[in-house]
């Protein structure tokens, strides 16, 4: 079954990424370039994943833009992850009544 193969590969890679350094690594990374690269990668990945996909996440560009705006404003003011995430959905849901 193909979905099972995808899930197995996905889980295995994700586990090895955590397990290998946690179990075997004892030293600090020396290369400044590599450390900098690893420092930026989480933000870059999330940014590339979110934009422009977020605008297609609700099935309507209008409600998605409303949700994105709400999330961006609340995130800018440093509100907790969960508040930002749920407000995005609430704003998208509310915008749905106007279009």
């Amino acid at each position: 079954m193909t979905v099972a193969v995808y899930i197995f590969v996905m889980a295995l890679v994700t586990y090895l990424i955590r397990m290998i350094p946690f179990t075997f690594f004892r030293k600090k990374i020396k290369s400044r370039f590599f450390r900098s690269f690893l420092y930026y990668i989480p933000y870059a990945v999330l940014s590339a994943m979110t934009i422009p996909a977020i605008f297609y996440s609700t099935g309507s560009i209008v409600t998605a833009v409303a949700g994105t705006a709400a999330a961006a404003i609340l995130a800018y003011f440093g509100l907790p992850l969960i508040v930002v995430a749920l407000s995005a959905a609430a704003a998208a849901f509310a915008a749905g009544f106007f279009c």
Binding site: L46, A85, S87
Partner: peptide, 16 residues
């Protein structure tokens, strides 16, 4: 449909 944006909202909360 509206809940489909939840994960992306969390990502924005991590990067902004």
């Amino acid at each position: 449909s509206a809940l489909g944006i939840v994960l992306y909202g969390m990502f924005l909360a991590i990067i902004i």
